[in-house]
């Protein structure tokens, strides 16, 4: 615990310093609250509207998590297919790149048009944006098993399924987690982007993205800041959840389980 506080000592100092400067600037230059609310005002907004924030947080969390979980299942499945042969990889991989290169804000209106508004459409946006990092990293992990290990399995007359389940898949786990770390953060971005276009408008069903547009249109900038803060807390939460599972799965055997680049 002491080590933990020592490690966050400097970031914490920076945080306090920035807050103080910010508050000072708002007071001395008399900046209007709708342009830049003082940290105090943001804190007050958080305290005052924590019910709304919690509600929006919950909704966006479900949407992002839904999209993220689907993309894990979908991404691993696609990677398993890709791992079957170089021909499959070569012919299909370029098309998965489309997922990465098409701007999500261009797809979101289409999704709204095709699937209507609501939680499922928002999840779909998060799903699409999460998919590529998982496919790319998992495929890489599945096909980069050292030759000697493949030969070892061949010498044991291992079947294709045995090789996949007992060699390629475990070998790909560290790479999979690299993909998951990337996707965990962008799943929240995806859900918020999705909400901007396809959120349900019913009362009490708007998540963080929906509330951000609302706060913006009402010039409730202190609330807007509170929402942005909540969104980043959500992103952090997802990321640390992934890091925790990564540690859980890999700390026994993987040298660099806790390093940013697990190969």
């Amino acid at each position: 615990m002491k080590r933990f506080f020592q490690s966050i000592r400097w970031p914490l100092a920076v945080f306090v310093l920035v807050l103080a400067a910010w508050q000072g600037a708002c007071l001395t230059f008399k900046i209007p609250g709708y342009i830049l609310p003082a940290p105090g005002a943001v804190a007050a907004a958080v305290a005052e509207r924590h019910q709304n924030l919690l509600q929006a947080f919950r909704i966006t969390a479900v949407e992002a998590a839904g999209g993220f979980l689907c993309s894990i299942v979908g991404g691993i499945s696609v990677a398993l297919v890709f791992a079957q042969s170089p021909v499959i990889r070569r012919s299909l991989y370029p098309y998965t790149l489309v997922l990465q290169t098409v701007p999500i804000v261009a797809i979101a209106p289409l999704i709204l048009m095709w699937f209507g508004s609501g939680v499922r459409s928002v999840m779909l946006v998060a799903f699409i944006i999460c998919l590529f990092p998982i496919i790319a990293n998992t495929t890489q992990g599945l096909v980069s098993v050292p030759r000697n290990l493949m030969d070892l399995f061949k010498m044991s007359n291992a079947s294709r399924v045995q090789t996949l389940l007992r060699l390629q898949l475990p070998h790909a786990v560290p790479a999979l987690f690299v993909g998951l770390r990337i996707s965990s953060g962008i799943s929240v971005i995806g859900a918020i982007t999705g909400e901007l276009f396809a959120s349900s408008n019913a009362v009490g069903e708007g998540g963080l993205g929906y509330s951000i547009t609302y706060a913006n249109s009402q010039l409730q900038t202190d609330y807007l800041f509170a929402l942005v803060l909540t969104a980043s807390v959500l992103g952090f939460l997802f990321f640390f959840l992934v890091v925790f599972f990564e540690w859980w799965f890999l700390h026994h055997w993987h040298e660099s389980a806790m390093k940013a680049d697990a190969e």
Partner: peptide, 29 residues
Amino acid sequence: REIMSFIFQDATLLPWRTVLGNVELGLEL
């Protein structure tokens, strides 16, 4: 292959398996 074993220059162990798990591998397959 059933009557042969190959020992490679690097030990080619599965890093996610314990010593016991690695020794069991051939029998398991």
